[in-house]
Computed example of a mutant assay.
Amino acid sequence: MSQPPEHQPEAAAPQPSPEAAREQGLLSVDEVIDIVDEHDNVVGTSPRGEAYARGLRHRCAFILARDAEDRIFVHRRTARKLVFPSMYDMFVGGVVGAGESYDETALREAEEELGVSGLPQPTRLFTFLYEDATGRGSWWSAVYEVRCELPVRPQAEEVAWHAFLTEEELTARLEEWPWVPDGLAAYRRLRELRGPR
């Protein structure tokens, strides 16, 4: 298994303004997303940047990607990410756009973040409401799994390091590496529901 770079965040760059982020392609703050209530019913729409700034409840899709050997795709986010920079994640995924379904988002985000095309439709496993302890708000999170037997080419602006880890390798690092909290919560729920494979 390749080792990740040491946990010295790649020169913790100052976080760009929403305008600078849009110009750099780091965050589409003008992208319109659905705003939902505590029961996951759509109650309105909002530009993504405003939804983040105001902590409006929205929707996300998380996809656990496994290779032909059943190993899990794990990556470290770049220091330039606006949300959870330089942290590790065992999921790829993103925010559901306005009028988009969870299933559509799951396939789109998996292909974009893994840098592949022609993935099968990810299998939906469960949905839960994530409440962020840092005050960023809450979001409904649909958790999926997909088999990716294609060579991955993750987006350099999104991913600083990546590898496919066995379940045992991943478990051994859960207490060692800084994980994105929503992904970690989703993974723990998955383990509780299904147990280790």
Results as ranks from 00 to 15, higher is better:
116 V>M: 01
116 V>C: 01
116 V>Q: 06
116 V>K: 07
116 V>P: 04
117 S>D: 09
117 S>G: 06
117 S>F: 01
118 G>T: 02
118 G>A: 01
119 L>E: 05
119 L>H: 09
119 L>R: 06
120 P>V: 00
120 P>A: 02
120 P>E: 07
120 P>C: 00
120 P>Q: 05
120 P>N: 05
121 Q>T: 02
121 Q>H: 03
121 Q>R: 10
123 T>G: 03
123 T>Q: 14
124 R>H: 13
124 R>Q: 11
125 L>D: 14
125 L>I: 07
125 L>F: 04
125 L>A: 08
126 F>H: 12
126 F>S: 05
126 F>G: 03
127 T>Q: 13
127 T>R: 14
127 T>A: 07
127 T>D: 12
129 L>C: 11
130 Y>G: 03
130 Y>D: 03
130 Y>E: 02
131 E>A: 12
131 E>T: 12
132 D>P: 10
132 D>H: 14
132 D>F: 10
132 D>A: 15
132 D>L: 05
133 A>S: 14
133 A>V: 05
134 T>D: 15
134 T>Q: 15
134 T>A: 15
134 T>M: 11
135 G>D: 03
135 G>S: 11
135 G>T: 11
137 G>P: 10
137 G>N: 10
137 G>D: 05
137 G>I: 11
137 G>M: 08
138 S>I: 02
138 S>L: 04
138 S>C: 11
138 S>P: 06
138 S>Q: 15
139 W>H: 15
139 W>D: 07
139 W>V: 00
140 W>A: 03
140 W>N: 08
140 W>C: 01
140 W>L: 01
140 W>K: 10
141 S>Q: 14
141 S>D: 15
141 S>Y: 05
142 A>S: 13
142 A>R: 05
142 A>N: 04
143 V>L: 03
143 V>D: 08
144 Y>H: 05
144 Y>L: 00
144 Y>E: 03
144 Y>K: 05
145 E>Q: 14
145 E>G: 08
145 E>W: 02
145 E>M: 08
146 V>D: 04
146 V>A: 09
148 C>T: 09
148 C>P: 06
148 C>S: 08
148 C>A: 05
149 E>G: 13
149 E>A: 11
149 E>Q: 12
149 E>C: 07
149 E>L: 00
150 L>M: 07
150 L>E: 09
150 L>N: 10
151 P>F: 00
151 P>V: 00
151 P>H: 06
151 P>I: 00
152 V>M: 06
152 V>N: 12
153 R>M: 01
153 R>H: 15
153 R>A: 13
153 R>C: 04
154 P>K: 11
154 P>R: 10
155 Q>Y: 02
155 Q>W: 02
155 Q>L: 13
156 A>F: 01
156 A>Q: 13
156 A>S: 13
156 A>N: 07
156 A>P: 06
157 E>F: 09
157 E>C: 06
157 E>K: 14
157 E>G: 07
157 E>V: 09
158 E>P: 04
158 E>V: 10
159 V>W: 07
159 V>I: 09
159 V>A: 12
159 V>C: 15
159 V>D: 04
159 V>Q: 10
160 A>W: 00
160 A>N: 06
161 W>Y: 11
161 W>I: 08
161 W>P: 02
162 H>P: 06
162 H>C: 12
162 H>Q: 14
162 H>F: 10
162 H>N: 14
163 A>W: 10
163 A>S: 15
164 F>E: 07
164 F>Y: 15
164 F>T: 08
